[in-house]
Design a protein around this nucleic acid. Structure first.
Lengths: 148, 148
DNA sequence: CGCAATTAAGTTGTGCACAACTTATCGGTG
DNA sequence: CACCGATAAGTTGTGCACAACTTAATTGCG
């Protein structure tokens, strides 16, 4: 009898649990700004290129989320007056997502968060970087396989 | 201007994405058995101790899920005739979750899955073990902080 | 040019996660 | 023994994720 099915042995379970644990760290912090973690991720992308107004599918490519997830999420961000959505002039299928002044201003108020969360992991900077790179590599490997 | 808010630099995003990518690997495989990943996790716990019939909250402790998640999930597993739920005789508040014959039999049919998924990560065995241990350590660190 | 295939965003339905709450049971203390 | 706080499971409501589908606009090929 193999022991491969033992929960604590599985990388996937460790990943699933660690991901939820880190979201738990974010939750009370982001809650003060009325944000969820996925909403915060969308804002991260927008803050990276404030003059860009990416489309919904460009956001989806960055975050690996589809319109089924992003459409209602963006509607909520728009309701919070953090982003605006407008149909592209040159391609009426596209919807461009831009920051409002309010959304732009939020950036500096949340700038300290990544440091707090990184600290909560208990890992050193080098370990964090190594972990991040390993995880990114795994994700890329899986997605590369999927496309073939 | 700090770059801490850049998406690709963040461990959390790497974790969030890797977790979803791995679930993506599981999905089509588990789909053949009519299972979701969290349902599979519950079965893993039950297979580990087939004579135990843990309570809902014992399952919750293992998986770090609350009754709000587990109750409907277990109802679906019961609908699929993979588990049975029964009130504990000596404590009517508790509900014990046991495997049906069908649930017990499923074990050997999914025994190969962890190997397949591990392979999809592209990591070697040693790397996988190291990754799992790092993630478990992070999760434990976070939960320990939470309890104090 | 005309139309079929493609692309973009949104909608619908299912199943987690999780907070907040409800209901029922239990255990301990006066 | 009665009651009160604690505990267990379930319910309700919100917000992701994701599959499958719809609608609308565009592209490209004959």
């Amino acid at each position: 009898m193999t022991d491969d099915l033992v929960l604590r042995r599985q990388v996937c379970f460790a990943l699933y649990t660690a991901s939820r644990a880190l979201t738990d760290v974010y939750r009370p912090i982001l809650d003060e700004f009325g944000l969820t973690y996925p909403q915060y991720l969308v804002l991260l992308v927008l803050w990276e290129r404030p003059d860009d107004a990416p489309t919904v599918s460009e956001l989806g490519t960055e975050l690996r989320l589809d319109s089924g997830t992003l459409s209602p999420l963006l509607k909520r961000l728009e309701g919070a007056e953090l982003v605006v959505r407008r149909r592209s002039a040159r391609d009426e299928r596209r919807v461009e997502v831009g920051l409002t002044e309010r959304g732009r201003a939020l950036r500096q108020r949340v700038e300290h968060i990544p440091m707090c969360v990184a600290q909560a992991t208990g890992l050193g900077l080098a370990e964090l970087v190594a972990l991040r790179d390993t995880l990114t590599q795994v994700t890329d490997t899986i997605h590369r396989q999927k496309e073939q």
